[in-house]
């Protein structure tokens, strides 16, 4: 087990180095001189230009710049934003809870609906219910989520007036945010209606972001269940006279869960990518919107640092899934 864990960790290191190199080199190949961009409309004198070049270290050889950046990254120093002048690291972690809250809710939504849908489809294989569920799953899987978001806004925010269009909470509420998670903070604040307002703001983005993972999980659960239902031990369980509910729910689902967990882990990248679209449409103050805004503002340190942080998040989750997978399924470790 330790050996397996160590080998997984060893492949993590070169990938991390590669990810750092890629995010580092982007800022150097982006068109336009970052210092001139930073000066903006006012422009700047030649001396000031030279001074800033020296300050950011752009005058030094590229490998020394990379070494400085890399050692900085290892100490949690991603540079300062050109626009706000605040450390990128601090900005990232100030906004990350909003994205995490949205992503976690979307994942819960996807799993709560996707698992039962897949099981029901597999048990009713070939029947109307199976076809209806799998057709819907394919539609969800093919959905352009930015359009889906606009449709939901038209219906639920426009026609029915049930949900707000943007933000995390109504502006009339104000309370400290020790955790950064609006659901928890609004509940802890004890203000009347704050929690309900936070939930209303969260519903549509959750549905939008969770749609594709929901479809993927439903499809994966169905095929994993079908595979397991053909196994001998299921026949044995049937022969023993166990109830269908017990066979499907306990014997089959537990074994079908292994590939499903992998899919859930792999969806994290999709979620963070989808967060860019979802957060932009709903003006959700998270990491995705921050990245897009920074790309438009040419705020290079933020683009560079944010890209790196998001990639590292995805890598950490994948590593965790791999390790969990090794724990659940001993066969994997041998390879």
């Amino acid at each position: 087990m330790l050996k397996y864990f160590a080998s997984r960790l060893l492949t993590f290191i070169p990938t991390f180095l590669g990810v750092t190199i890629i995010s580092f080199s982007f800022i150097r190949v982006l068109p336009g001189d970052p210092i001139i961009v930073m000066a903006g409309e006012r422009g700047l004198t030649d001396e000031r230009y030279a001074e800033l070049t020296a300050q950011f270290g752009f005058d030094r050889p590229i490998y020394i710049q990379f070494w400085d950046y890399f050692t900085g990254v290892l100490q949690g120093d991603l540079g300062d934003s050109f626009v706000t002048k605040r450390p990128v690291w601090d900005e990232f972690f100030a906004l990350f809870p909003a994205t995490l809250e949205l992503a976690v809710c979307a994942m819960i939504f996807a799993v709560l609906l996707g698992l039962p849908a897949g099981v029901i489809a597999a048990v009713n294989r070939g029947k109307f219910l199976d076809r209806a569920l799998m057709s819907s799953a394919l539609v969800g899987y093919s959905m352009p989520i930015f359009w889906w978001a606009l449709l939901l806004i038209i219906v639920f925010s426009g026609d029915l007036q049930w949900t707000p269009v943007s933000g995390r909470i109504d502006l009339i509420y104000y309370f400290p945010d020790p955790t950064g998670f609006m659901l928890i903070d609004s509940l802890a604040s004890g203000q009347k209606g704050a929690f309900a307002s936070a939930v209303r703001h969260l519903v549509l983005p959750t549905i939008v972001l969770g749609t594709i993972p929901l479809a993927v999980i439903a499809r994966q659960t169905r095929s994993a269940m079908l595979e397991v239902l053909g196994e001998d031990y299921i026949r044995t369980a049937r022969a023993k006279g166990l109830s269908p509910g017990r066979i499907n729910g306990i014997h089959a689902l537990r074994n079908a869960l292994i590939p499903v967990i992998t899919v859930i882990g792999l969806s994290v990248g999709t979620l963070l990518g989808g967060a860019i679209l979802t957060e932009t449409i709903f003006s959700w103050p998270g990491v995705g919107k921050w990245m897009l805004d920074s790309i438009f503002r040419r705020d290079y340190p933020v683009v560079q640092g944010g890209l790196l942080m998001i990639a590292v998040m995805v890598m950490v989750v994948n590593l965790t899934v791999d390790v969990l997978y090794g724990i659940i399924n001993p066969k994997i470790r041998k390879r």
Binding site: G18, V19, G269, L272, G273, L292, I295, A311, M315
Partner: peptide, 14 residues
């Protein structure tokens, strides 16, 4: 692996 570590839409955007 490095390319796959980035969410595809984000990498395409950058």
């Amino acid at each position: 692996d490095v390319i796959l570590a980035f969410p595809s839409l984000l990498l395409a955007l950058v």
